[in-house]
């Protein structure tokens, strides 16, 4: 069921709340790992946000401010545009007939935006970060697209609502575990996060984040959490049955599942080392891509039978 303008506003606010929760959870994990009290980690993102809001913007000689700002603002905008097709229980902002392709198009936007953030700063480290992201994108995008195809084939529709409805009896994660894992990895990758965060790696002084300061930095950091949150919500709709679950209403289940997936995606950062994009390419094309194609073959055979 589609919601009105007020529903769209609610979706935006909800995305913000979930993203803040994600940042707080990451802060908590970081604090615990350093032996600090968990509470200091929970509030850390808020203090950091307050600090960045007050920080004066660093100016750089010959920076391409226009492209830089587009990239900086874009991540958050793209996350919002993704949430448009992510259902919350029975509600969707816009249940497009091609919702799956819409989500995919929006995550391709991230290619351009991260590169623009790297380019705009007129800084070598940031530019290397931008190139790294595109190198990584060549590895994760095709497996991600094929992983998206699985639920679409099984549901016989590109409408996210139909995909959720097709999981009434059995969640797609049960017979599409490979597609599920690959899609989750794709979400982590397009959010420049954890093992796929080489574009913002510490070895290049923060890469695309290197020259960002003040509100620009805040927008990019928030954009990453928002992308992770939107991706987690889409994983729930695609593979985890959307809002289906006993006792509680559908929207509660959607939120609970989304937060659980999001917690796992956030936690991955503390578990796995950063993967170099050039090494990722070999694994992605020789191991992951064939594995996803086999998964699709399985799905295709199951659908035909």
């Amino acid at each position: 069921m589609q919601v009105g303008p007020l529903g769209a506003l609610t979706a935006a606010v909800l995305l913000g709340v979930v993203a803040v929760l994600a940042a707080a959870f990451d802060g908590t994990l970081g604090a615990r790992l350093q032996g600090r009290r968990a509470f200091s980690g929970v509030t850390a993102p808020l203090w950091e946000a307050a600090r960045l809001l007050r920080q004066r913007r660093r100016t750089i000689v010959a920076a391409d401010s226009l492209l830089w700002r587009i990239g900086v603002v874009g991540l958050l905008v793209v996350a919002l545009l993704k949430v448009v097709v992510v259902p919350l229980g029975w509600w969707t902002v816009a249940d497009l007939s091609i919702g799956m392709v819409w989500f995919n198009a929006m995550d391709v936007m991230v290619w351009a935006l991260v590169w623009l953030i790297g380019w705009g700063a007129n800084s070598a480290h940031a530019l290397i970060g931008g190139y790294r992201f595109l190198g990584q994108a060549l590895s994760y995008e095709l497996p991600l697209m094929f992983a998206l195809t699985g639920p679409a084939i099984a549901a016989g529709s590109l409408r996210v609502g139909d995909v959720v409805a097709a999981q009434q009896d059995l969640w797609f994660v049960v017979w599409m575990p490979v597609a599920f894992l690959v899609f989750c990895a794709g979400v982590v990758a397009f959010s420049v996060w954890g093992p796929f965060g080489a574009a913002a790696g510490e070895d290049i002084a923060g890469g695309v984040l290197a020259e960002l300061s003040g509100v620009d930095r805040l927008l990019v950091l928030a954009g990453r959490y928002a992308l992770l949150s939107a991706g987690a919500g889409f994983v729930v709709a695609l593979f985890l049955g959307g809002g289906s679950g006993p006792l509680a209403p559908a929207w509660v289940w959607t939120l609970v599942k989304t937060l659980a997936v999001l917690a796992a995606l956030i936690g991955v950062r503390r578990l796995l080392p950063v993967v170099r994009p050039d090494r990722l390419a070999e694994v992605a094309w020789i191991v992951v891509l064939p594995a996803v194609l086999l998964q699709l073959l399985l799905v295709g055979v199951m659908v035909v039978l």
């Binding site: 392709v101 995919n104 198009a105 391709v108 936007m109 290619w111 351009a112 590169w115 595109l134 994108a137 995008e141």
Partner: peptide, 10 residues
């Protein structure tokens, strides 16, 4: 939109 943004990025 998807393909053109991807192509232009590359």
């Amino acid at each position: 939109i998807l393909m053109m943004v991807m192509e232009m990025a590359i």
